[in-house]
Simulated scan of single mutants.
Amino acid sequence: MAAHIQIEGNNIAEIIDSAFLLITQAIAKCNKEIDYNNFYWCEIYTKQRYSIPLSRGERVAVDYILPVKSKQITRQE
């Protein structure tokens, strides 16, 4: 299972600075967690959401794809 997350910002530095925190929060809200045993991190820069807006001085967006799994439920006795 993979998560596909899109983050928008004023520039790439702003996106990268906040990406990990925003991604982990979004995944947790979906009752999932990052699958570190099968971990990869894919950044996708599209022409429509990154290159064209960047050339116009507009906000840009980067897509991230990474593996997730259902949260492990721990029982407290």
Rank of each mutant, 00 (worst) to 15 (best):
I52A: 12
R59E: 06
K32G: 04
S70Q: 12
F20D: 10
S70P: 11
V62N: 01
R56F: 12
E58F: 04
I34T: 03
V60K: 05
I12H: 05
I5Q: 06
A13L: 06
E8R: 11
Q72P: 05
P67K: 07
N10D: 08
I52C: 11
I15H: 00
I23C: 10
Q25A: 08
P67F: 11
E43P: 10
Q48W: 04
I23P: 05
E58A: 12
I73M: 03
E43Y: 05
C30H: 12
Q48E: 15
V68T: 10
A3K: 02
I52Q: 14
D63N: 09
Y36G: 00
Y45Q: 09
I34E: 04
V60E: 08
K32P: 04
R56E: 13
I27G: 06
S18C: 01
A61E: 14
S55I: 05
L21W: 06
I27R: 08
W41C: 09
E58Y: 11
H4D: 03
E14D: 13
Y64N: 10
A61D: 11
P53G: 13
E8K: 05
D17F: 12
T74M: 00
M1G: 09
W41I: 12
I34K: 07
D35E: 09
R49C: 15
I34L: 09
T74R: 00
L66I: 10
E33W: 02
E58Q: 14
S51T: 15
I15Y: 00
Q6L: 09
S70K: 14
R59G: 05
R56D: 13
K69D: 04
I5Y: 05
I7E: 01
S55F: 08
W41D: 13
S18L: 01
D17T: 04
I5M: 01
F20I: 09
A28V: 00
S55M: 06
I27W: 07
I5R: 02
K29E: 15
K71Q: 11
I15C: 02
P53V: 11
I16E: 13
Y64A: 05
E43M: 10
R75C: 00
L22S: 02
N11L: 02
E43G: 14
Y45H: 13
E43H: 11
D17V: 01
G57P: 10
H4I: 08
E14Q: 07
K32I: 00
I34F: 04
I16S: 11
Y40K: 12
I12P: 03
E14A: 13
S51P: 01
T74V: 04
K71M: 07
D63G: 04
N37V: 13
S70F: 07
A26H: 13
E77Q: 04
E8I: 02
N37G: 06
I52V: 15
P53T: 08
D63H: 12
T74K: 01
F39G: 05
W41Q: 03
T74G: 03
I65G: 03
K69Q: 09
C30M: 12
L22G: 01
Y64F: 15
Q48L: 14
V60Y: 09
N11D: 15
D63Q: 14
